[in-house]
């Protein structure tokens, strides 16, 4: 299983230099950069844990690299993503998001089907990771 959330999940894993290039692009646009991590990448898990608040008005991508390293050290077997945030009126939302760290083994998801009225089926996407949380 290889979850494909984010901008670049179909590409080979980004190198440190490639991550830095994306961060620099965000900084050049004046966007805030944030690092988030989780062990439960359910597609509806909106709120991953924040690795500190978003970094506003940074001028140097080195700050992000530093924080990313620290986050990786603390959560080596987790999903980590980098987000960029644009506070322009009318946007005021995330404008970049890409995964920069994955667990060695990605447990993936199961699909539970509950038969309902008629031929209707109610679906639940169940993350295998929550069967053994904290791994």
């Amino acid at each position: 299983m290889h979850i494909t959330q984010g901008q670049f999940s179909f590409l080979p894993p980004l190198t440190e230099a490639e991550i830095r290039a994306q961060v620099d692009y965000a900084i050049s646009k004046g966007w805030a950069v944030a690092i988030e991590w989780t062990d439960d990448p359910h597609p509806r898990n909106v709120y991953w844990s924040m690795w500190g608040p978003p970094m506003f008005e940074i001028r140097d991508g080195a700050a992000v690299t530093f924080e990313l390293e620290a986050c990786r050290k603390a959560n080596p077997d987790s999903y980590i993503k980098i987000n960029a945030f644009d506070n322009t009126r009318g946007v005021e939302s995330t404008v970049m998001s890409f995964i920069v760290n994955r667990p060695a083994h990605e447990p993936g998801f199961g699909l539970t089907r509950q038969e309902a009225d008629g031929r209707n089926i109610r679906y639940t996407t169940r993350p295998y990771s929550t069967e053994r949380p904290g791994r």
């Binding site: 979850i3 494909t4 199961g110 699909l111 089926i121 996407t125």
Partner: peptide, 22 residues
């Protein structure tokens, strides 16, 4: 239309579980 809707949603949910993406 009902048949289309039922089969399409099976497909959507299964692809969602396979990819972890909406």
């Amino acid at each position: 239309w009902r048949d289309r809707f039922l089969f399409c949603m099976e497909a959507v949910n299964k692809a969602q579980a396979n990819s972890g993406e909406i």
